[in-house]
Nucleic acid binder design. Structure first.
Lengths: 194, 194
DNA sequence: CGCGACGTTGATTTGCCTCAACGATTGTGG
DNA sequence: CCACAATCGTTGAGGCAAATCAACGTCGCG
């Protein structure tokens, strides 16, 4: 990925590095492009990579034993995406990651990331803090889901992710909210009647 | 906490430290004891501590806007407990942590923990890996909840936590499974009829 | 021993799902 | 650029798992 190390600065916003370090970092990120409809990852694949999104839109979802999809995460510019359960446990994928809008990303392997942690400790701290926040956000989302009605969750969603709502299908949102497309449709109708 | 540094070795199992480092670590852990029925933490409290459980049983739960309890975590020997959402985001508690059986714990403050990370980097790695696993486990649990019936979830619970089931009330389990005590009661009756 | 907390059981309600059919929109080849 | 198919979204009827409400056993602590 050489050349535009401005991107490195974008990824690790508040950190600063020596030229030496930037070379190391550049050497482990690899730019990849995907088209709408592509899948980065399929259920049961080995999960060796995490992706930083430069542009585009993706989602990760789990398919349960009844064939139902559960959207776990949407990903847009400046977000990271992977099947974290598999990535962290070094086990096979339980998610599918699909490209919703043409996407450009930086990819880093688990091995390279661990190596980077050892060579540049502030990067371990950077990701540790990111993970702490992701954990907290995920827990909050789950607790909301448990105590709110489908309508409330939908309203929160469109408030929290106005940018995402426009770019994804109805059934993506439904599976993120934990309801069927039919229910989402009825909720929208109900809301527009008021 | 001086004296029994065997505990330090127990907490950080695979790590080894210099005497110097052990002194530092000892100085930031503080032993606390609580009685059954005590609360370590109440909704909206400041969350400055994380606890390592030497002995006893606890649970953390969130009370939603309708007054319903959602048990997020049980804690027994060798587990860590806190309101992680608040601890990580440095915001006020959204959980209550209650002592189910008399408990002895080591307490560490957020500030001391960050300081420890800076002084002894392997400890940051240790907690980073713990968090990665906790994140993965939590995500798996949520996905199971979304695709399984209440009965399946109950069966998984008693298989996964046979030790915990004995020590907690029915309504603790029900609120962990996301159902009412009445439903849990009916599930148990149904299962015993087979 | 008595009282409050906990657990069980029954009757009824409800939010969302399932199944089915029918519009609307999108995108692709001729 | 249109035509037409595939995909996506909407609407309706009916069903179901679990919640709610209410009453009654039972256990365990002071």
């Amino acid at each position: 990925m050489r050349s535009d190390n401005t991107k490195i600065k974008e990824i690790f916003k508040d950190l600063s590095f020596s030229n030496e370090q930037i070379k190391i970092i550049e050497s482990v990120f690899y730019k990849v492009k995907f088209k709408k409809g592509d899948t980065l990852l399929n259920d049961n694949d080995n999960v060796d990579y995490q992706y930083y999104i430069l542009d585009g839109c993706l989602r990760s979802y789990h398919i349960d034993s009844h064939g139902k999809e559960h959207t776990v995460q949407f990903g847009i510019k400046d977000w990271w995406i992977s099947d974290y359960t598999a990535f962290f446990l070094e086990s096979n994928a339980i998610m599918t990651i699909e490209v919703i809008q043409d996407a450009t990303m930086y990819r880093i392997s688990r091995a390279d990331k661990e190596e980077l942690y050892a060579q540049i400790p502030p990067i371990e701290t950077f990701f540790r803090i990111k993970l702490e926040r992701a954990f907290a956000a995920f827990q909050k989302r789950i607790l909301s889901n448990l105590s709110q009605t489908a309508t409330e969750r939908y309203l929160n969603f469109i408030k929290a992710y106005p940018n995402i709502e426009k770019s994804v299908k109805n059934y993506h949102i439904a599976s993120y909210l934990g309801i069927t497309t039919e229910s989402l449709s009825r909720i929208r109708k109900e809301l527009s009647n008021n």
